[in-house]
Design a protein around this nucleic acid. Structure first.
Lengths: 345, 345
DNA sequence: CTGAAAGCGCTAACAT
DNA sequence: ATGTTAGCGCTTTCAG
């Protein structure tokens, strides 16, 4: 029923060579003469030979495979990141083993172990919201497997990471808002235990302090990075009749939650209450009103991570950790472009 | 520098057992007594043992790994599908090797070969827009590797697939529109070479014929499934001053392209021109106006595919191909809910 | 330039 | 209940 896979020895028998010669020829080893290489290759192709990945990697040093761990896939930011990682890998002849933690630290740990057991050459990871135990990263290090953190990075020394300049981006946005006249600014800040949550908060704080705008603690929320968190936070303020002029959402989904809540209670954006968020998505252009955001260079983030990781893989002895911060871009659309006159009165 | 990976024989030496005993104990083989199994496992854990995936799969029959090929990742539909596939796999103890064809048939073929060489137990695939050479699927079959087509399926006999009832879904939407009074209906139909394009078109045609609404050939476009195609098609009609009342977009991105074009030329949706599309996305709720759509049950699609594939893997002898059509759901939001009065005049 | 020998880490079949 | 033998398909010494 099922046709046998063609192996090196099949080709060897047919050509009366040893498997070693075939193996070398196929990999373009200089040992083999140009003529026989050519012959062997054409026969291999004709016979439909494909190397056995498992066997190859069991005996060879490297697998030419990179493991990736992300918290989510159906998500604008990570979707874009992953796609770029796959593109980069394809163009550089690497395979990708993608795993998804679903924001679950236990799952994340398991996936890292799986990647290790699959003998990936290196790992790129964006940790979960709740990752607190960093021991597993030490295990990776001890195994000598290069590791690059992307966007969500733990607070531990001697690591390589690529992230966006969250603080600077948040600062610019809030500074812009303040200059337009917004004073009552809330911040739905997500998890402050994780770098992106903390840094965005610090950028917010810095801008508020610089312009001596008081920070109202009741307007600073901590919780999550998803729609529900945006929705709930908004509703809480609404019920308390304590709404600000502008909400700075820590992520794009949080802003979406705000949109949902505002619509539900018949409040208009940006007339009654205004929103801006960290993180961009194409669809934001089509929202009503179009949502202003602090855009992240997803493709660059992915490329830089891969570049550093591959560099680390190829120079594991001399490599020194790299920490990269990429700049964001403030994109103004329908929200956060002018102060709402009603509030001035 | 890099700590050695702990192997079976390391444990064996420490415990004065053979590797076979260790191997069996770790896999819970009934050969080994309960007591020693427990002992061996605890020591293995203590030593930080992780099985070598490559070695295991090289000697064992199955890899407990499923290969997946999709045309895109940063895309609402495929993002959701992939996430569900990962979830299902995680809960059923399978690993996933995901590859992305980027709508490129060549790349697709390469990826399938890679998956084969990785000895995956089965493959789930959603083919590209342009896949015309189906020979590779025969290769997969000959190798005895179970294959399930998901959503985008080629027109070849004796295959398993899971898809949405595209024709029925399109029919319902157009029927609904006609009943509301829409007569001038355009269809941006994407690629009709592929099942989803063809079936959606046929559903459209069926509804139009049933209610004797003439189909204007100038309003039926073929091209792609992306934003650009929606934008370009709209613009062409706009320039020719030949706009319909309603545009039925073959995919959600195509509808987005229409939104973009309409806004650019200052036409209002749904007052001046109306839109409905095949395929749902959460964000559609937040569009202005909220976009009506024919929703696909992504989670079910993923689950069914996995279920069938795993069934096929486990019963490769007795298995018979399954063809599944899942029903869609018409979701009415801001568009396609009432006929535009201006047009009646 | 070519090949024989050894082994990567694991498991299946067959003893004991 | 435990171990021995053999081998998955490939690559890396090392001899010739």
């Amino acid at each position: 029923m099922s046709e046998k896979f063609v192996t090196l020895s099949d080709i060897a028998k047919r050509l009366n060579y040893s498997t070693v010669t075939i193996s070398k020829a196929l990999r373009g080893h200089s040992d083999i003469s140009h003529a026989t290489t050519k012959l062997i290759r054409s026969v291999a192709e004709e016979m439909g030979y494909t190397p056995n990945f498992m066997a190859r990697n069991l005996s060879a040093r490297r697998s030419n495979t990179i493991g990736v761990v992300v918290p989510k896939i159906a998500h604008f930011f990570f979707g874009a990141i992953i796609e770029s990682i796959y593109d980069y890998a394809f163009n550089h002849n690497y395979e990708i083993i993608l795993t998804v933690s679903q924001e679950d630290a236990e799952r994340e740990k398991k996936h890292i172990q799986t990647l290790l057991s699959m003998k990936v050459d290196g790992i790129i990871i964006s940790i979960t919201q709740e990752t607190k135990d960093y021991e597993i990263f030490n295990v990776v290090r001890k195994r000598g497997v290069p590791l690059v953190f992307l966007d969500r990075v733990p607070d531990i020394p001697d690591i390589s990471f690529v992230q966006v300049n969250d603080r600077e981006g948040a600062f610019q946005a809030i500074e812009h808002a303040i200059n337009l006249g917004y004073k009552n600014i809330a911040h739905f800040a997500g998890y402050s235990e994780i770098n992106i949550g903390m840094e965005r908060y610090l950028g917010f704080e810095e801008a508020m302090n610089k312009y001596k705008v008081p920070i109202n603690k009741e307007w600073v929320f901590h919780g999550g990075f998803g729609e529900k968190y945006g929705y709930d936070s908004f509703m809480k303020l609404y019920r308390e009749n304590n709404l600000p002029d502008l909400i700075f959402a820590v992520t794009y989904p949080v802003a979406l939650g705000v949109y949902m809540a505002a619509r539900e209670v018949n409040l208009n954006i940006p007339e009654d209450i205004d929103v801006i968020c960290f993180g961009g998505a194409e669809v934001q252009k089509f929202l009503s009103p179009p949502l202003s955001c602090i855009n992240q260079p997803t493709e660059l983030l992915a490329e830089k991570s891969m570049e550093i990781l591959i560099d680390n893989i190829n120079n594991s002895e001399s490599f020194v950790n790299k920490n990269i911060y990429l700049p964001t871009e403030l994109i103004l659309r329908g929200t956060c472009i002018k102060f709402n006159k009603k509030q001035i009165i």
